[in-house]
Simulated assay, not measured.
Amino acid sequence: MYALKDQLSAELAAIEADGLTKHERLITTPQSSHIGTTAGDALNFCANNYLGLANHPEVVAAAHAALDEWGFGMASVRFICGTQTQHRDLERAIADFVGTQDAILFPSCFDANGGIFEVLMGAEDAIISDELNHASIIDGVRLSKAQRYRYKNRDMDDLRAQLESARDASARRTLVVTDGAFSMDGYLAPLEQICDLAEEFGAMVMVDDSHATGFVGEGGRGSHEACGVVDRVDIMTGTLGKALGGGSGGYVAAHQEIVDLLKQRARPYLFSNAVAPAVVSGSLKALELARESDEGRTRLRANAELFRTLMTDAGFELLPGEHPIVPVMFPGDDGARLASDVADAMLRRGVYVIAFSFPVVPRGKARIRVQLSAAHSEDDVRACVDAFVAARDEVG
């Protein structure tokens, strides 16, 4: 045991020496655009609260009411006695929103992605995954016995080559899987071209839309709507933990047969407690608010455009795009430490952002991932840019 402790201590010291230690900052208030932290009050530019619904009064009220009506916890998995009528209400609402026949709730989207591949894909099948897909997809693919292929990020020539390899290996089923919006870059996947290739090779398409559902595409239906392929994507996964209220829970939305089979065999579904009643009710309300009005999406787009314009004018290097994820890049060998120092200097100025470096992003491509929200005002956005400029000047 002492040898193990020494080994782990050395590993942690190496992480710290490389400037890669991830420190958790404590928040003392509800999630919002303005939060309290143990370091003081701050503008929050690092949450996935895209539509500002995490502390929306109607969402909070729905969750409060659910505690009285439905109780605190389910204390059971879904197939034993863990399914309330509102669980099915939420699943049907999600399926209708994203345009599929049905949906199935999981404790998180990590669990949804962790459970689907093992059920659908066997040793005689092939999974072709974008190289920058979320860790949950990577881990889920590893749990299956399928043949594994990887294509370069959004590279359709490479995807074609991998589809050819899967065909040459006589794969029974082939599944192309991609993030709808890539969380570290803010890029949308080229879903129309992906669907074209998949149809050419007789493959299925799966999209993880966690960073798009609720605010990308017409009515916020997602990246598949933005790309005009709602009826061409076979499987959609997503989360309730970002734009749709920011609670917990994830889902798979798909053809009825896929959903039905997941209910029989998906291990994270079969062996995890059902999503808590208050979260279900709050998420139902959040989905209702997202569907009924474009106001939040309009504010979100305006905030993202303003931030990109001001930061570009101030001389910062941004990854291009329109998504409210805006990576501010700090390339090079010293980028990880520089990004971390700038983030710390910004918090001292009352702006909360987070630096990302290896292994979350490739070496040499450190960044501060700024995430805009509909809850931010124009003054908030300008204050964030001012803090970036001041922190850059301080850090040098």
Rank of each mutant, 00 (worst) to 15 (best):
L318D: 03
G71Y: 06
F72S: 08
M346C: 01
E218H: 11
D379S: 11
Q7R: 11
E131D: 12
S210V: 15
R349W: 01
I80H: 09
L105Y: 08
A61L: 11
A39K: 12
L12P: 00
I325N: 00
I116V: 15
L90T: 03
A343Q: 04
Y251A: 00
S283I: 10
A302F: 02
Q256P: 05
I368W: 04
L175P: 07
C195A: 12
E118N: 14
G52W: 07
L310D: 12
R232A: 04
D102L: 09
P362M: 07
S293K: 13
T85G: 09
R337L: 11
R78Y: 13
P30S: 15
L197M: 06
R291K: 13
H323S: 15
M346Y: 09
M346F: 08
R173S: 04
L12N: 10
R232W: 09
S165K: 12
F388R: 00
R349V: 02
A374G: 01
T237R: 00
I104E: 02
D208C: 09
Y149E: 06
E257W: 12
Q193H: 14
D234A: 04
D380E: 05
N133F: 05
G40C: 10
G350A: 14
I368Q: 05
G82W: 08
D185R: 13
G364H: 04
F388Y: 15
E295C: 01
G219D: 06
R142N: 10
A10N: 10
Y187L: 15
S357W: 01
R301K: 13
H224D: 02
E16R: 13
R173K: 12
A13E: 12
R363T: 06
L244H: 00
P331M: 09
P190V: 06
A189Q: 03
E394C: 01
G282K: 09
L4C: 00
E295Y: 15
L306I: 09
R167G: 14
R265C: 07
D313W: 00
F388H: 02
I368Y: 04
G40I: 13
V370H: 02
I258Q: 00
G186P: 02
T100W: 02
A169T: 05
P107H: 03
A75T: 14
L191M: 11
L261F: 08
A3E: 15
L319G: 07
V233S: 01
